[in-house]
Nucleic acid binder design. Structure first.
Lengths: 180, 180
DNA sequence: GTACACATGTAACCGGTTACATGATTGC
DNA sequence: GCAATCATGTAACCGGTTACATGTGTAC
């Protein structure tokens, strides 16, 4: 078994850490909230919960095999809480930035409940540096290649650059807000 | 077989439409360019090219089965060019916006070479409307739920909102530039 | 003649999507 | 008793990831 679970797995783990919930509760959360990053389909959520259980990261709130299909609230185990904190503290890597910052923002979303301020500041600092470095790459590339791109290709490229600049501003704002 | 291929498939098709290239050429393109949206691994590219060939969307430039593993340049067929244009002209749907605009931006990137100006303007208009609608959802949600979110959760949510606002500004800029 | 870059592929695995199945509870 | 909804799951499929396999051309 892989040491690391999917983003969906960690998102579920995080939500179970906020309060015990059933698989159905989790589905409804994804269904009603407009962020839409994760699917609310049972075919995604129940297999993910199965993985977490097999890893020993979550357990049913009240033990004993349930008969039939009754609702069963789940909560993280001590092992699960450790695994979750370890995930939050993973270093920021270049590929996390290159393929879209969604995974990093997801991790950040749960930090204030689970990490001390210093660790969050460290995270945002290294995120900022990684974004700056990638922006440098993109701008170098643009100087060399922009002339070769068709108009809409260039505009599409610029939307990526603008998005990254937006994340930079956001990280700075988040830093100010966290430090308060 | 599905009527629609993956984003990777259409990206390859688009690049072959610009000029005949081999699978290796395509890999190198993905390897050197910093956008990093697609993998340069042979395990992604060659199966995707196989799909395109089985669909009859691409063909080897010079017919005749190649002996061994010699380089083989590919080009789109008439059917492939039609499929590509159809993909470019797919309507903008809400889910394309909710799950991240990457797919839409990819389509836009190839429009100026393949669509007339009116169609591009129509695309950007409907993209703008879809983003506005989704922003409305997010802002409604935020008014109701923001108080319940932990500080970093609220900040993460705001990064999504800021990103969408950025896309709105970008679409407006792109419209001005396309109309010129 | 051998090392290395060129070039194309395949196999095992993994997780999400879609669609379907099925049992339990509630309201009437 | 019966419909609707609550609640949990499974099976087939699909495409990307990782790692490996293998043949070809060139430089030395």
């Amino acid at each position: 078994m892989n040491a690391r679970d999917s983003d969906l797995g960690y998102a579920l783990l995080a939500l179970l850490q906020q309060a015990p919930r059933s698989g159905y509760d989790l589905r409804k959360l994804f269904e009603t909230n407009p962020i839409g990053h994760f699917s609310d389909s049972p075919g995604a959520i129940y297999p993910a919960l199965g993985r977490l259980r097999r890893r020993g990261w979550i357990e049913p709130l009240s033990g004993g095999a349930p008969s039939g299909r009754r609702r069963q609230a789940l909560r993280p185990t001590a092992l699960g809480r450790r695994a979750f904190r370890a995930w939050l503290q993973l270093p920021v890597e270049h590929k996390d930035v290159a393929h879209g910052l969604d995974g990093l923002v997801l991790r950040f979303a749960f930090m204030s409940e689970n990490l001390e301020r210093r660790a969050i500041v460290r995270f945002l600092d290294s995120l900022r540096e990684a974004v700056r470095a990638h922006l440098g790459n993109l701008e170098r590339f643009r100087r060399v290649e922009a002339a070769r791109l068709p108009p809409s290709g260039r505009l599409a490229f610029d939307s990526g650059v603008a998005g990254l600049r937006g994340y930079l501003r956001w990280a700075e704002r988040a830093l100010r807000e966290i430090k308060r």
